[in-house]
């Protein structure tokens, strides 16, 4: 392998990682607070989960196509890609956070009330800590999905490892495709393992 290819793999891997981390940070910043609010509102929960489920079923290439012509959020480049990737990452984080919060043993919650904790204290000291393993599980699903889907984002000029794949397809060049696909797959495996390890570490018993 020549050193130019190696250094391109390196820089595009970093770019890919950046796309993924920005996406996960935004998705988590939206989905976790949303889940906290939705945990107490059954009607809103059904609507939002329904919407997020539908968003999840839109094929990613089609979603990129829809977003491109839109003013402000559309256009060629990273921003459009990150918006689309966030839409996919939202659902797993949202759903897992909800499951985690709503899964807290009713007796534990009642005991927290009985001890004189405020609603805010119950959320921060009891519900969220007990939901952490479930939240990490959601982040894990979101991370693996985003790493894969982000390769497609190269079609709209987002950069990252998908650049190799787009180029390889255009030039019918298999090694180019592999130069994008293999690091992306490796990144997904590492993220999966690492987050699973964290999840296990944080689970009580």
């Amino acid at each position: 392998m020549n050193s130019r290819l190696a250094s391109e793999i390196f820089s595009l891997t970093l770019e890919h990682l950046e796309l993924v981390l920005i996406t996960l940070a935004i998705a988590a910043a939206v989905a976790i607070p949303a889940a906290v609010l939705l945990a107490r509102h059954a009607a809103a929960r059904r609507w939002v989960l329904g919407f997020a489920n539908i968003a999840q079923t839109i094929p990613s290439l089609a979603l990129f196509g829809f977003l491109l012509p839109l003013p402000f959020i559309g256009g060629i480049g990273k921003r459009t890609a990150i918006i689309a990737l966030c839409l996919y990452a939202l659902l797993p984080i949202l759903r897992n956070t909800l499951t985690g919060i709503r899964g807290v043993d009713a007796a534990v919650r009642e005991s927290a009330v009985a001890m004189g904790m405020t609603r805010r204290q119950i959320l921060w000291l009891v519900e969220l800590p007990l939901a952490v393993p479930s939240i990490v599980a959601g982040l894990r699903i979101a991370a693996v999905t985003t790493i894969g889907t982000a390769t497609i984002a190269a079609f709209i000029g987002a950069g990252g490892l998908g650049v190799f794949i787009v180029r390889g397809i255009a030039m019918m060049d298999k090694p180019q495709i592999l130069a994008g696909a293999v690091p992306a797959a490796a990144m997904a495996l590492v993220a999966d393992e690492a987050l699973e390890w964290i999840e296990r570490r944080l689970s009580p018993a």
Binding site: A107, V108, E110, A114, M115, V126, L130, P204
Partner: peptide, 11 residues
């Protein structure tokens, strides 16, 4: 309040 079955915080 000593809760029946303790009701301790597991974490």
């Amino acid at each position: 309040y000593v809760i029946q079955d303790a009701g301790l915080f597991p974490h």
